[in-house]
């Protein structure tokens, strides 16, 4: 049963991140996902400390606030003082992440958050933390949180799909149609922040990025339409969750780490196949005019 809950939880993370990651990588914003996933830390720690519980709502608020702070910082550096974009991202999120770690150390004795959990989560403990309906356990808390998030994300993306695709593919055409570019940008970023925060506890900051960038990138190599890309990305994400779990069991190591490793292997495999086929196709074409 534990296997089932861990794999299901990871699959839900994979589902949410595959959908949003597909948009992010087509918008060349994969590193914004990286920045947000690290930067939510101080907000989470403070909320954790103030509410003294793992209650989801305060943590969500805390994370949202620090998500906003990092966006504002990046904007400040890149727009106000004209620092190059990549450096702006780098400065902003490392700063907030450092503050988060300091806060953990400061509150360390009162709060059971630890540094390692922040980076690679503790998905192994998911099945222990159950919620109850009366006396009956109805499954792990993390599962229900991620399940509700998945419903929100899927609904949000279906509603906004057309506008999101249009603003992703051709921003100026979208603007000329009168579509509010900034609104849809924030719509997407809000979804990314939500997903990052709720996935944080199970897979940690860095591995959310593996899920956001990996499966969509692998799918991108072999798809013809954007809908297909999302579907493939979900497929790759979920299969990486399953394979990753058993790899971790086999090696007796971190589950989330193993999932990231499998995501990397999937990409390497698809990449090589695509390269190999391209090469053989080039050789197949007869030299014209010979």
């Amino acid at each position: 049963m534990n296997d089932f809950w861990i794999i299901t939880t990871a699959s839900l993370v994979a589902l949410n991140t595959a959908i949003l990651g597909s948009f992010l990588i087509m918008r060349k914003m994969a590193m914004i996902g990286d920045a947000i996933s690290h930067a939510v830390l101080p907000g989470i720690v403070i909320a954790y400390f103030i509410s003294n519980s793992r209650a989801s709502f305060p943590i969500l608020v805390g994370a949202a606030v620090s998500g906003l702070v990092v966006t504002a910082l990046i904007q400040f550096f890149s727009k106000k003082v004209k620092l190059q974009n990549d450096a702006s991202i780098g400065i902003s999120y490392t700063f907030l992440f450092a503050i988060g770690i300091i806060l953990i150390s400061a509150f360390g004795t009162n709060v059971d958050l630890d540094q390692e959990c922040v980076l690679y989560g503790e998905i192994a403990y998911v099945p222990i933390d159950l919620i109850y309906w009366g006396n009956q356990s109805i499954g792990p808390r993390q599962f229900w949180i991620l399940f509700s998030t998945a419903i929100i994300i899927v609904t949000a993306v279906i509603i906004g799909f057309r506008k999101l695709v249009l603003t992703t593919f051709d921003e100026s055409f979208a603007a000329a149609l009168g579509i509010n570019i900034v609104f849809w940008q924030y719509y997407l970023m809000a979804s990314v922040s939500l997903t990052t925060v709720v996935s944080f506890e199970s897979v940690g900051a860095v591995l959310v990025i593996a899920f956001i960038s990996g499966p969509p990138a692998t799918a991108f190599l072999i798809t013809r339409s954007f809908k297909q890309m999302i579907m493939y990305a979900i497929g790759f994400g979920i299969s990486a969750s399953i394979l990753g779990y058993y790899t971790a069991v086999w090696l007796n190591g971190s589950i989330a780490g193993a999932m990231a490793a499998v995501i990397g292997l999937q990409f390497a495999l698809v990449f090589s196949i695509v390269k190999f086929r391209q090469r053989s196709r080039i050789q197949d074409i007869p030299v014209s005019g010979a």
């Binding site: 593996a210 971790a248 971190s254 989330a256 990397g264």
Partner: peptide, 10 residues
């Protein structure tokens, strides 16, 4: 970045 890090953690 994330795949290498994940592998390292593993």
């Amino acid at each position: 970045l994330s795949v290498f890090f994940g592998t390292g953690v593993l």
